[in-house]
Computed example of a mutant assay.
Amino acid sequence: MVNLQIRDVPEALRDRLAATAASRGQSMQSYLMSVLKDEARRSANVELLRAIDALDEGDEFSGAEITAEIAAVRDDRDRRNTEAL
Results as ranks from 00 to 15, higher is better:
39 E>S: 10
40 A>S: 12
40 A>I: 13
40 A>C: 10
40 A>P: 00
40 A>E: 12
40 A>H: 07
40 A>W: 08
41 R>E: 14
41 R>T: 14
41 R>I: 12
41 R>M: 12
42 R>Q: 11
42 R>V: 10
42 R>S: 11
42 R>P: 00
42 R>G: 15
43 S>N: 11
43 S>E: 13
43 S>G: 06
43 S>F: 07
44 A>V: 09
44 A>W: 04
44 A>D: 11
44 A>L: 02
44 A>S: 14
45 N>C: 09
45 N>H: 11
45 N>M: 11
46 V>K: 09
46 V>W: 05
46 V>M: 08
46 V>N: 07
46 V>I: 07
47 E>A: 14
47 E>R: 15
47 E>V: 10
47 E>I: 07
48 L>E: 03
49 L>S: 10
49 L>N: 06
49 L>H: 12
50 R>C: 08
50 R>K: 10
51 A>P: 00
51 A>K: 06
51 A>E: 11
52 I>F: 11
52 I>S: 05
53 D>W: 00
53 D>R: 13
53 D>H: 07
54 A>G: 13
54 A>F: 01
54 A>W: 01
55 L>W: 05
55 L>S: 04
55 L>R: 05
55 L>A: 15
56 D>M: 02
56 D>H: 02
57 E>Y: 05
57 E>K: 11
57 E>W: 03
58 G>Q: 12
58 G>K: 00
58 G>F: 03
58 G>D: 12
59 D>M: 09
59 D>W: 06
59 D>N: 15
59 D>Q: 13
60 E>R: 15
60 E>P: 01
61 F>I: 04
61 F>Q: 02
61 F>L: 08
61 F>D: 01
61 F>P: 02
61 F>Y: 15
62 S>A: 03
62 S>R: 04
62 S>Q: 01
62 S>N: 02
62 S>G: 10
63 G>L: 13
63 G>Q: 06
63 G>H: 09
64 A>Y: 01
64 A>R: 08
64 A>Q: 05
64 A>N: 05
65 E>W: 01
65 E>R: 04
65 E>I: 02
66 I>Q: 04
66 I>S: 09
66 I>W: 01
66 I>N: 02
67 T>A: 14
67 T>M: 08
67 T>F: 07
67 T>L: 03
67 T>Y: 06
67 T>I: 03
68 A>Y: 01
68 A>G: 04
69 E>W: 10
69 E>L: 14
69 E>T: 02
70 I>A: 10
70 I>Q: 00
70 I>Y: 08
70 I>K: 03
71 A>E: 05
71 A>W: 00
71 A>T: 05
71 A>M: 05
71 A>S: 08
71 A>L: 07
72 A>W: 01
72 A>H: 02
73 V>N: 06
74 R>M: 06
75 D>I: 01
75 D>R: 12
75 D>W: 00
76 D>A: 15
76 D>N: 09
76 D>R: 12
76 D>M: 10
76 D>C: 07
77 R>F: 13
77 R>Y: 08
77 R>L: 09
77 R>I: 11
77 R>E: 14
77 R>V: 14
78 D>A: 04
78 D>H: 06
78 D>I: 12
79 R>S: 09
79 R>E: 14
79 R>D: 12
79 R>A: 09
79 R>F: 00
80 R>C: 02
80 R>V: 08
80 R>Y: 03
80 R>Q: 09
80 R>D: 06
81 N>F: 13
81 N>Q: 13
82 T>D: 14
